[in-house]
Each structure stands twice: as structure tokens, then as C-alpha cells.
Design a protein around this nucleic acid. Structure first.
Lengths: 211, 211
DNA sequence: TAGATTGTTAATCGATTAACAATC
DNA sequence: TAGATTGTTAATCGATTAACAATC
């Protein structure tokens, strides 16, 4: 399976969508699907789907299409969902609490096992059985505990410092909810959830269609 | 200013980023900036920045660059931030509450003026002075009150129904936090915040860089 | 076998980058 | 004026779509 190299971002960003639609098809007990049918569901061209999937392997069968269950398993493996992930969340404010409480992630093998905040009022509180710790303890916790993913939900001005600290603690992937572009070394991956940018895009589109 | 047509999504998605960086430059009291300097800050090529901006007008001056304040004003206007927006949020669970509480939006002229939920325990509670109303009242509230943007924070299975209801009530833009792709008529714009997809992308990148 | 649908190559389309004359 | 930097056209690069032989 060494096809795996130099996959474009465009393709990568579509993988989770395939995953979601295949999960749904499985739930509806659909056994097979052609690229044409899947394309109609998902809103892609059949051609694009075949191109995308062929970046990773030959999952289909001529004259038949794709076996839903098998393809789902394959995509899950490609995404890396065949193992679990431990995350540490920093910043237990509005968004931090929402993310901590979001149960949908657990099906994906994703677990938040540590939560940090600087606010004394929050420290000691529990979110889904995980106690909020003092951010000063983060360094030592990261040392004794292997964390895959850091989640940054702190105010903008603290985000970079927290990122640096997470990286020093061995974190290789950062899910960033703060409205900044973090500066990180090459071996660290960042995925941003920039809510304001998303909202501004929507506002632009709203006005565009009205004018 | 009728250059405004047929702007590609790639460009539109970059506009909020320009807005953010220009805001920061203004705060730092920078008067002028060249496409080269801005590019270095923001991580785009100078060429791309000039191309992007020229979709909307001639904002620069040869030999000088761009006036930060003026460009910021222009980008704000392009994004539609020269007026205010009223939003209705549906689903006051984890994410709904986080979004309701997110104060950063108010600087953008964006205000959540109505919140709905189906849960009797939540109805009557207040979030930032806005009372959570019974979702059954939504139809009448939308009738008497002009709402620009609907925010969907309900569970997946209810999202499409809520979207339909918002659209019937005259909403033209939907900010969707539910993990579904909504089906809407052409004149309605949807911007998705798909947290699971974002997380899966990050997990993929994490594994890619490790292998 | 015949029909369907894949994997893959080639053609097209769109977005990014480079180059440079215009000009402040 | 000379240097700097734009706006814009042309070249390149990459992503999407179309086409079709291979084959289940």
C-alpha cells in the first residue's frame, strides 16, 4: 500500500466526506455502490471519486462497483482510524467545553484525556469525567503521558505560547480553534477551525447572492 | 465597483484572512504595506495578493503599496461588514451555547437575537441576555422579525428539518454545525463547520507525517 | 456471454506564479 | 529623477473531467 505518497490536499479534504457517506450507507445496509451513485449522493463526479480512491488502491471491481463495507474499512484505515488517539485540550472556556463534551468524536477512537485551564474557578471541575487541571501542570503531564493531539481553545494572544508548549511536550498534531495562524516546525501538523473566517465567508456569499 | 462578479471560491475563502491581517496591522499602527510584505506575513505570494485584490478594484499605488487603513475598509465593505446582521441560533446544546457566547462576532456587526431549543430544561434560560425560546415558536418569531442568518447546532437527524423551516421563514444564509450536507435551494447559501471532518483531516496528516 | 463499471490515460479547465510595462 | 511596487498579461502548474480499453 505504498501508493500513499504525495496526496494533494484537495483529495485529503474529501476523505472524511467519503468516510461519512460510507458510514451512512452501511447503516442503511447498502452492500454495493458504483462511483456514479456515490457521486450523485455526495455531490462529486464519478470520475473524481474513482481518481481519489485510486490514489490509495484498487478498491473497486469492474462491472460491480465498490463493496460498501470494504471501502469503509479501507478509508478508515487510510485516515488512520484503526487505532485510538489521545488528546489534550487547553482552554476550558466556551469552545473548549463544547469540544470536550462533543461525544461524536469517541466513535472515531478519539479521546480527550487531559484538560487544562489557567482560570482557578475552572480548575478541579470535571467535564465528562476528566478533571480540569492547572495549565502549569501541563508540562509534567505531557511528559508522563503520551498525547497525540493538542487542542487549542485559548484566547488568541495565548495560542502561540500554548502551541509551543504542546510541541515541546511531544505533540505532533494541533487542532487550533484560536483565530491565529500558528507558527510550527514542519513535523507538526495544524488543522484550524477559524469560526470568524467561516462566518465572514457566509456573510460574503449572502451579499453576493443578494446583489 | 462592478468588478464584483464571478469571484472564485478560492479567492473568497482568502478574503477573511486579509481582513484579519489588516486589522492586526492597523492595531500595530502600520500605515502602508506592499504585497510582498503582506505576503510574507500571511503566507501567500505577492502575486496572488495582487491578483486577489484586483478582482475587486485598484486599491494600491505603484511604488508605494497599499494604505492599510483604506484597504481594510475596502475589504470590510467587500465582505459586507458595513452593515449589521441578525442571526437566529437553533439548538442550545454544547456547540450552540459556545457559539452564542462567542463574543468575537460582535465586532463584526453580527448579533444573535434569537435562540431556540426543543429541550424544556433549556427554554427560558438566558445566554448573554437572549432568552432561549421553544422551537415551536420559531415560525412566528421569524415572521415578525427579519433574520439574516440561521445557525444550526441541532443533532444531525434534525438539521435538515430545521434548515427547511429557517428557509421558509425567509433566512438566506445558514451556518451549519451539524454533520450533514444540507439540501437547500440556490438562493440560500450554506457554510459548514464540520468538526469531525476537520479532526479526521488532522488525524490523516498526523499519520502521513509519521510514516 | 453481454452489460456494467472500473482503473487509468488524455484533454480540459481553473488557479497560481512569473514577468514586465506602467506609473507613483 | 530613480527606485519601488503596482496592475495585468502570459506561462506554468495542478486539479477536475472526459474517454475508453480492460475486465468482472
Amino acid at each position: 500500500m505504498e501508493k500513499h505518497k504525495n496526496i494533494s490536499m484537495a483529495v485529503i479534504k474529501r476523505l472524511p466526506k467519503y468516510h461519512r457517506y460510507l458510514e451512512e450507507l452501511m447503516k442503511n445496509e447498502v452492500d454495493r455502490i458504483s462511483s456514479k451513485e456515490l457521486g450523485e449522493k455526495i455531490g462529486f463526479t464519478a470520475s473524481q471519486i474513482r481518481q481519489d480512491l485510486n490514489c490509495f488502491g484498487d478498491f473497486g471491481q469492474q462491472g460491480y462497483g465498490y463493496n460498501v463495507k470494504e471501502l469503509y474499512t479501507q478509508i478508515s484505515a487510510i485516515l488512520g482510524l484503526d487505532r485510538g488517539y489521545e488528546a489534550a485540550l487547553v482552554g476550558a472556556g466556551n469552545i473548549g467545553q463544547a469540544v470536550s463534551n462533543y461525544s461524536r468524536f469517541e466513535n472515531l477512537g478519539f479521546k480527550i484525556t487531559a484538560i487544562f485551564d489557567a482560570n482557578p474557578k475552572l480548575i478541579g471541575m470535571k467535564i465528562r469525567d476528566v478533571e480540569i487541571m492547572d495549565i502549569d501542570e501541563m508540562e509534567s503531564v505531557l511528559e508522563e503521558h503520551k498525547i497525540d493531539i493538542g487542542i487549542i481553545c485559548v484566547p488568541r494572544k495565548n495560542a502561540q505560547v500554548v502551541a509551543d508548549e504542546l510541541i515541546r511536550g511531544g505533540v505532533r498534531a494541533i487542532w487550533n480553534f484560536a483565530p491565529v495562524d500558528l507558527v510550527v516546525p514542519d513535523h507538526v501538523k495544524v488543522e484550524n477551525v477559524h469560526l470568524s473566517e467561516s462566518l465572514l465567508t457566509l456573510i460574503y456569499l449572502l451579499n453576493e447572492s443578494e446583489s
